[in-house]
């Protein structure tokens, strides 16, 4: 069975060779050549100065895609329950903490420790946007995008109002990089509403499927799709970029994928 229809109100993408959604559209559609490129991340100005100084890649990336999706939806971030979904959270911070704990001087920095919680980016989001709505932070390894999308859709229907999805991944440095080689940071933001409105861009319905996942025609985009959990969303983003109705299957768990219909 499918979920009730959910309406996309805002969308953002930040990753290699795609610095925002407008730049991504022609590349996803093959109208412009796609070339992976270094991802530039800036500390968001809405974060208080102290927090801004401490912000690592995970906070910068998640906040950038969140703010862009909210802006695209012409929404108020403070009003949106939010779902953060990431396979590793702030991986650089985790690595630093592990190095200190393996050293002879286990002088753990209090800031490093409170930044080590998986929901640290969500905590900074709340502080920056003054959003006191429900917020969750998920992980499902390679299934992290699908898990976040399902959580956001069901949360929006239960809450009866738009919710924000921020799916993002960054990489660990070595030595953990060898076990979890995420080639580039990539983040996707979506504002999803249970009601049709003036800002609705597309209507979506989700269901579980055992069909194989849709693939990207472009070899580099396909490599990103397979290499970064949040990039498992690329077939859906490709369909949304086309502005056409259609259906894609995206990877979720090994034995449980997500079929997404874009209707109208």
């Amino acid at each position: 069975m499918s979920t009730a229809t959910i309406y996309l109100e805002g969308l953002s993408l930040l990753g290699p060779g795609m610095s925002d959604w407008a730049e991504a559209v022609p590349r996803l559609l093959g109208q412009q050549p796609f070339q992976v490129d270094e991802v530039r991340l800036a500390a968001p100005s809405i974060l208080p100065a102290t927090e801004r100084r401490r912000a690592g890649a995970a906070v910068k990336l998640s906040m950038a895609v969140g703010l862009a999706a909210v802006e695209d939806a012409d929404a108020d971030a403070a009003q949106l329950p939010n779902v953060f979904s990431s396979t590793g959270g702030d991986c650089e911070n985790c690595h630093s903490l592990l190095e200190v704990l393996a050293s002879s001087e286990r002088m753990v920095s209090p800031t490093r420790f409170h930044n080590s919680v998986h929901n640290a980016p969500a905590g900074y989001w709340g502080i920056a946007t003054k959003c006191t709505e429900a917020s969750t932070s998920l992980c499902a390894y390679d299934a992290t995008f699908g898990a976040g999308l399902l959580e956001t859709v069901t949360q929006a229907h239960s809450a009866g109002k738009p919710c924000l999805l921020i799916a993002f991944d960054t990489a660990y440095p070595e030595p953990l990089y060898a076990q979890r080689p995420i080639p580039y940071p990539l983040g996707v933001g979506m504002v999803l509403s249970p009601e049709h409105s003036a800002v609705s861009k597309a209507a979506l319905r989700l269901s579980f499927s055992d069909e194989p996942a849709s693939r990207m025609d472009d070899a580099q985009l396909e490599a990103l799709r397979q290499g970064i959990p949040s990039a498992r969303s690329l077939p859906l983003l490709h369909l949304l970029a086309s502005g056409q109705p259609g259906r894609v299957v995206i990877d979720y768990l090994d034995d449980c994928r997500l079929a997404i219909e874009v209707v109208e």
Binding site: G89, H118, N119, L138, A140, A147, L150, F208, L253, C256
Partner: peptide, 23 residues
Amino acid sequence: AYSVADFVRRFFGLSGPAAVVST
């Protein structure tokens, strides 16, 4: 973070949705 849900899901041979909440 997902490892414990992955473990429990496989322990019971389940094929439905799963996630770890880490807040």
